[in-house]
Design a protein around this nucleic acid. Structure first.
Length: 952
RNA sequence: GCGGACGUGCCGGAGUGGCCAAACGGGACAGGCUUAGGACCUGUUAGCUUAGUGCUUACGCAGGUUCGAUCCCUGCCGUCCGCACCA
């Protein structure tokens, strides 16, 4: 096996020493490619590797096309994850500490040192400081042509200043606004919580659910129930309270509300002002009547244990037609006079309560809840699980297929989704309802504290609907190139749907909002224009200008006056101009290669940001999309043990093998499936390819070239180039890794040793150049072997010599091959194992003329009659009888018409020339005859491109 | 539910109106090389059939448009992805 790792190290060092990929401003056309900057994490895996590798292969190609290529890479540290690691380590979270020790051990051998480093992670910055260099190293093992001088992290001061500038601009334009917003919240922590702060938040995500509060007038107060389905209110028959619980009467606004204590606690977090007045026992409410909204009549208050004071308001409005819990509660009461008596209720009155059918749902009768409970044999509230399932099923059916019945006043005939919204609005409008939020399931934060939904005031939003912004964003979109183009529609849809987006949080790493320091700009919002920093960052570090707004105004948009700006930011004017020129040269980026999943957030925000901040000549040029990454057929996850890290990759295979495998195994936009077995195959293939190329570099000399083979190589070069330009890496890879091998195989079979050396001499440089972007280390090694002194990485891409593309020569080649195949078939059919003699009859002159004419006619029409008439107008009418038979056959299967019609004489001559080769193949004499000069019956079936074959 | 994508051989996957039994690769089978294994080379890998280089069927299912459809249209079935405050 070839030692790819050794080769890789050698060339990576050489590149670095030569500063080969440090991109500097020049007179050359530039090409600036970016990818999403990776988030800091313990280990890089093949998921990270995909996007950088694809971008690198393309960057290398562009470089070889003669462009001045900039491929930079920065790192993202904003948001909660890094902070979360720090906190976990500070809290002595054993699991996390072990995990990170494991990561650190990848680089550090001494255990004491490992301990010390992990302990230092209590400080988030230390995590960044430790991992960023390691990540750069690991990425570099892939053979990336990245200019690392321009690297930074989103926590760096340069980046923060840029983001501040951006947000001040937003504010000035009115794109940044403040308002109320519900968030998941822990009272104990005094903070909003995200998925990773919640126990099992990743496996069982918690959402914010919107309940509608429904107010039932009871004397001078309101009994408040909560529902997720306000559209069912026409089916109310009664109200449920828990007889064993206490409720609170509280002053809310000018009203008195009755609900559970927990409920008022929740409401207090949601911007309500509440003063508790007194307690009331659930039991004491039973048997009373309250006024139900929409029904506009009084209904009974009844007991049910399914009222949970912790859920909603602790009071439930009863819709037995559509809610299994309600139906079973009601039924239990109706079936038990004793129970009624216990609560002092009149059994007869309760027996009179009937469910009211209100919604037509597909697949259900009048009363879905009743129906389903019978079907599933649900009799008791004890059957929690079954009841919940039944509820969900009805909910789903009702929501998606339900139509409101006649008895639903002005909402009759509406679909339920529409009715829900309308009825909610009416409740709010009449002040018989309100909105309350709840977590979708009971949830706890990692410290054990309960999670609520709180409404934050003064939340900062980006308002994508601010006047003018969206229009401009559409403009940016209109001018950008997308590969594949099909994603444009998706962008358009997302643009329409984008509204207000919270863009700052109370915690996490990142940039503080410049005008409100208690807020940190959220991590997706702080990474929409960071690409603009790539051209400048190393210069900012070198010259240290004061990073004021006028500075960025001038450098990024050209606003302002250099002299003033230079004075203001305390560097010489020349430097400011230099920085401005650098930006102007590189920006905008020419391509962003990224994951489709970013479409609805990062990419959209990025386009909006550019629309807001830059003039048209700085708008992004192109986005290319790649698919997702899986391993051994499934999603990568630690528990499945199928995560393949870059460290492993490098140890077991090396960069070239991975690059080749990655690009070959899937098209850019499809899912990349890592399969160890396949990877092994690629390793052996690449090894033998290396050996073959090695052999070619040795066995070569100058001389006459085989036309057909050279033509094939030229054609493949052209195809590879076209595919490459269109980002079709898989197709390009197929050609360089396999199809050229096949051509060479053919050559070594067909040519003499001497002729092969001539061909090799022509092929070797060409082939290596084609391989260089894909497997750069191997290409460098062989390039030197082939006698060159330069780096192949910065050589020029081969240009197709169109003169050398000779369709006729290639066709002749194929023609002879096809004949050999046909002879084999005929021998088999004739059951002649070892032919004694083979005769080939070349089709008559007129047949060639006829097929040529036919081909022309068929470009116009496939209509038999038309073609026949046209043919009969020519000389060929003499052969009318045969032609009558031939036309339908050719029309039925136009593939029979040879792509090139050589004609009788050429075909005859070609076969005569090849006679010796055919004889050699079949080991018997071969005769070539014109069908015109024989009486042999077989000769008549000869067609152009298909000589008749006679074997004896 | 809404929005999007997809469904081709044993498998991964090309093709996107006639040049397709289907590129390229993998697997399987047979043969060669080899002490053996690996690597490598040759052939076969839908069915049928034949003195003639062919025929028939196939690209989720059912229809339609067309001289002609894997490719266009309609419906159905199935799979996957996104639906926001999360990087």
């Amino acid at each position: 096996m070839v030692d790819f790792q050794r080769m890789q190290k050698k060339w990576q060092d050489a590149w670095q020493k030569a500063k080969l990929f440090e991109a500097n401003r020049s007179d050359c056309e530039k090409f600036f490619i970016t990818i999403p900057y990776p988030y800091i994490s313990g280990s890089l895996h093949i998921g990270h590797a995909r996007v950088v590798t694809e971008a690198d292969v393309y960057a290398r190609f562009q470089r070889m096309l003669g462009k001045n290529v900039l491929f930079p890479l920065a790192f993202h540290i904003s948001g909660t994850p890094v902070l979360g690691i720090s906190l976990a380590i500070k809290n002595k979270d054993k699991e996390k500490i072990e995990l990170y020790k494991g990561y650190v051990r990848n680089y550090i051998t001494e255990e004491i040192e490992v301990e010390r480093i992990v302990a230092s992670f209590e400080e988030p910055q230390k995590i960044v400081d430790f991992f960023v260099p390691k990540m750069k190293e690991e990425f570099s093992t892939l053979g990336l042509s990245v200019d690392w001088r321009r690297s930074f992290t989103s926590g760096d001061i340069e980046h923060q200043k840029l983001v501040e500038w951006q947000f001040k601009k937003y504010k000035k334009k009115g794109y940044l606004i403040q308002g109320k917003y519900p968030v998941l919240y822990s009272v104990a922590l005094g903070n909003a919580v995200g998925e990773d702060d919640i126990i099992d938040g990743d496996v069982d995500p918690v959402e914010k659910q919107e309940f509608v509060l429904v107010k039932f007038r009871l004397n001078d107060s309101f009994l408040v129930a909560a529902t997720l389905r306000p559209e069912t209110l026409f089916g109310q028959t009664n109200v449920w309270v828990n007889p064993d619980c206490d409720y609170i009467i509280a002053k809310v606004g000018g009203e008195k509300w009755i609900a559970s204590e927990e409920c008022f606690e929740k409401l207090k977090l949601q911007d309500w002002i509440i003063t508790e007045i007194s307690k009331v026992k659930g039991k004491s409410l039973l048997g009373k009547k309250c006024l139900a909204p929409f029904l506009e009549k009084n209904i009974l208050i009844l007991p049910s244990s399914h009222c949970d004071t912790d859920r909603g308001t602790g009071i439930v409005t009863s819709v037995p037609s559509d809610a299994p819990f309600d139906w079973i509660s009601l039924k239990m009461l109706q079936d038990s006079p004793d129970l009624c008596k216990k609560y002092g209720l009149t059994h007869n009155e309760i027996k009179k309560i009937n469910p009211i059918a209100i919604i037509d749902s597909k697949g259900y009768g009048e009363l879905p809840a009743v129906e389903l409970c019978e079907q599933r044999k649900i009799f008791s509230l004890e059957q929690q699980k079954e009841l919940t399932e039944a509820t969900q099923e009805i909910y789903k059916a009702g929501f998606h297929t339900g139509i409101m019945k006649e008895n639903c006043s002005r909402f009759a005939g509406m679909n339920t989704a529409h009715a829900r919204e309308e009825m909610k609005q009416e409740l709010l409008h009449n002040n018989t309802g309100a909105i309350m939020f709840e977590p979708s399931r009971p949830a706890k934060a990692r410290d054990g504290s309960k999670i609520f939904v709180a409404i934050l005031d003064n939340q900062w939003f980006l308002d994508f609907n601010a006047p003018g912004w969206k229009e401009q964003a559409h403009n940016v979109l209109k001018h950008i190139e997308l590969v594949p183009e099909k994603y444009r529609k998706q962008f358009e849809d997302i643009f329409l749907w984008l509204d207000k987006r919270p863009c700052a949080r109370r915690r996490g790493l990142g940039t503080k909002l410049p005008f409100d320091q208690q807020w940190v700009i959220e991590s997706l919002s702080d990474s929409t224009v960071y690409m603009a920093l790539y051209p400048l960052c190393h210069m900012l570090r070198e010259h240290k200008p004061l990073l004021s707004d006028p500075f960025f105004d001038y450098v990024l948009t050209g606003e302002g006056n250099v002299t003033d700006v230079a004075k203001q930011c305390n560097v010489p004017k020349k430097i400011v101009e230099d920085i401005r020129n650098e930006f102007n040269y590189w920006y905008p980026f020419d391509q962003r290669h990224t994951f489709t999943a970013h479409l609805s957030n990062h990419l959209s925000f990025m386009l909006f940001a550019h629309a807001a901040l830059f003039a048209r000549n700085k708008w992004p040029k192109k986005i290319t999309f790649h698919g997702m990454v899986i391993s051994e057929g499934t999603k990568m996850s630690k528990s499945k043990g199928n995560v393949v890290t870059l460290l492993e990759l490098n140890n077991d295979y090396g960069a070239d093998v991975f690059r080749a495998f990655m690009c070959y195994s899937t098209s850019v936009e499809s899912t990349f499936n890592w399969e160890t077995k396949e990877m092994e195959k690629m390793k052996t293939h690449l090894s033998s390819l290396y050996r073959l190329l090695e052999e070619i570099t040795v066995h070569r000399s100058k001389g006459k070239l085989p036309t057909a083979l050279v033509s094939k190589v030229e054609r493949l070069t052209e195809k590879a180039t076209d595919y490459f330009k269109a980002m079709k890496l898989r197709e390009y890879t197929t050609i360089t890794l396999f199809e050229l091998v096949n051509v060479h195989k053919k050559a070594s079979k067909r040519l003499s040793r001497e002729e092969l050396a001539f061909f090799n001499n022509y092929l070797i440089d060409r082939w290596l150049l084609l391989l260089a972007p894909l497997v750069p280390h191997m290409a460098e090694e062989l390039w030197r072997m082939a006698g060159h002194k330069s780096f192949i990485s910065t050589e020029k891409w081969p240009i197709t010599d169109k003169e050398k593309i000779d369709a006729m020569a290639e066709y002749k080649d194929e023609f002879v091959e096809a004949i050999a195949e046909d002879i084999t078939t005929v021998c088999k059919l004739a059951k002649v194992e070892h032919p004694k003699e083979i005769t080939l009859f070349v089709a008559d002159h007129w047949k060639g003329d006829f097929v040529a004419l036919l081909k022309e006619l068929m470009m116009e029409s496939y209509d038999q009659k038309t073609i026949f008439t046209s043919v009969m107008k020519t000389e060929l009418q003499k052969k009318g009888e045969e032609i009558t038979k031939l036309i339908p056959a050719y029309i039925k299967d136009p593939a029979r018409i040879p792509p090139i019609i050589m004609g009788h004489d050429t075909e005859l001559k070609l076969l005569q020339d090849e006679r010796y080769n055919i004889e050699k193949t079949f080991g018997c004499p071969v005769r070539i005859q014109s069908a015109e000069k024989t009486t042999e019956q077989k000769a008549r079936v000869a067609l152009p491109g298909k000589p008749a074959i006679l074997v004896k």
